[in-house]
Structure formats: C-alpha cells, structure tokens
C-alpha cells in the first residue's frame, strides 16, 4: 500500500510504466478468473445427478428461440452472397463457380461467426442480464445458503446447452444460406441449378465442414462463459451497482464476446488452413 502511493507519485515515464504493469497484472488476473470460472462450470456439467431438464430448458431458450432469426439471417446472407458473388464471378466468366463460392464462405466463415454474433445478441445478453439480476437481488446467495451450487445450477446448463445449440444453429445457417444463394443465383439470375449444386458438391470437403463445426464449438464455450461470468460477478464491478451494474455487465458481455469470437475465429482459421 505504501509502495503504491510512492510509485504513483512518480510522474511521466515511470508512471506510465507503472500503469502498464498494473493493467497487465489486472488483465492476467481477469483471464485467470475467467479460466477458472470456465473450468468449474464445464466440469460441473458432468456432475451427478445430470441436470437434463435444465439443459433442455436452456436449449429451448438459446436454440429454439433463435431458430427464426438464424433462419432469416442465413437466408439473407446466402442471398446477398449469391448476388455479390454472381456479379464478381461473371466478370471472369466463371459464374458457374457461384455455388462453391457461396457454400465455402458460408461453411468456413460466415456460418459459425454470424451465428455466434446473432446468438450473443439474442441469448448472450439476456443470460448476462438474468444472472446479473439474480446476483444483485441475492438470489445467488440464496442458492448458496440452500447448499445448491450456483455454478452448477446456473452456469453449467447454459454451457452444455450452448455446446449443443451452436453447431446446430450453424448447420441450419449454412443450409439455409446455401438455399438463399440458390434463390438469387438460380431462380433470379438464371444459373443452371445442376451446376450450382454440383459445384458445391465438388468443392466442399469434409475438412471445411468439420472446421466450421470446430469453430462453432469454440464460440459456444466462449460466449456462454463470458456471458455467465459477466452476470455472475456483476456485484464485483467497481463502476456501477444495482441496475446500472447489470446494464454494464450486459454491455461488456456482448462486447467482449463479440470481440473474442472474431479474434478466436482468426486464430482458428490460421490453424485450420
């Protein structure tokens, strides 16, 4: 404590070095906390008795309720890919490649990423808010006093459900996206439908598909961990308490998850290629 005040008294260069060091330590500490949080939450998925009902509920909440929005986004993404791809490819006279272009960009990249971003917006934010409100209204403490592990009760089912739901929503997104490309490419712009699909069959290999699913699994764990973590530790925030704390927690849950999804997407892509 005495050291700190002595250091912060130093102006200029040393002060900023000091700041850098403190921030680094803070970030490392935070990462460690998230890591432990993730490990606990994940391990408790497999604790007995298995929380089957609660996982179903969360699959319903995260998955079924996202079904329509994912279908809609998938459709339009596929359609716009078809449109853009056609006008780019037609310059090289290879508009027959449209199917491949649409399917590969969907399966490898857009499917997992856009699905993750949509689920963050729809379910991630409400996970953070729900757990945050439970925290500030002492419901989490209440669980604790009843000797019910709040991590197991609140976090684990959401993680398990995310792991189930994300690949499925991604697959749905991909399939509907390919259909969307079919709508613009074939129905609107008159490419032969046989060529469109044959191109897809020719160019997509299993590695693309498994790569896409690997990404969506990684995103599932990231999103559920970050959103639960932000809600769970709402009360530890220094800049806001109560309802304000919950709103800040929700915001940072969404922002951090989105950024992490894109960063991890880059890292995974560079490993998978």
């Amino acid at each position: 404590m005495a050291e700190k005040t002595a250091d912060s008294g130093n102006q200029g260069f040393l002060g900023s070095i000091n700041w850098l060091g403190r921030r680094t330590l803070e970030i490392i500490g935070e990462l460690g906390a998230v890591g432990i949080f993730f490990a606990w939450g994940f391990a408790l998925i497999f604790s007995l008795p298995f929380q089957f009902r609660k996982i179903i509920q969360q699959v319903y909440f995260i998955g079924v309720k996202s079904f329509l929005i994912i279908s809609l986004i998938g459709l339009f993404t596929g359609m716009v890919l078809g449109l853009q791809g056609y006008y780019t490819l037609v310059k090289f006279g290879s508009e027959g490649m449209l199917g491949a272009a649409v399917a590969l960009s969907l399966i490898r990249e857009l499917g997992p990423v856009l699905t993750a971003l949509m689920v963050i917006g729809r379910a991630g934010s409400s996970i953070a808010a729900e757990i945050g409100i439970m925290r500030i209204s002492e419901q989490i403490d209440a669980l604790d006093t009843m000797d019910i592990n709040p991590m197991r009760y609140l976090v684990s089912p959401r993680m398990a459900a995310s792991v189930i739901v994300f690949p499925m929503l991604t697959a749905l997104f991909d399939v509907i996206g390919i259909f969307g490309g079919f709508l613009t490419g074939v129905v609107l712009l008159g490419i032969n439908s046989g060529i469109y699909f044959n191109r897809i069959y020719d160019s997509v290999v299993l590695k693309d598909v498994t790569g896409g699913f690997l990404k969506s699994l990684a995103f599932a764990l990231i999103v559920s961990t970050i959103c639960c973590y932000q809600g769970y530790f709402t009360h530890m925030r220094s800049e806001g308490f109560g309802a304000r704390g919950v709103s800040l927690a929700t915001t940072s849950a969404v922002v951090i998850s989105c950024v992490l999804v894109l960063v991890v997407d880059y890292i995974l892509t560079s490993f998978l290629l």
Partner: peptide
C-alpha cells in the same frame, strides 16, 4: 433474506 430473494 431481507428482500426474500425468491427466484423470480
């Protein structure tokens, strides 16, 4: 709990 802490 003071505010009941019922699960809403």
């Amino acid at each position: 709990f003071q505010n009941n802490a019922l699960f809403d």
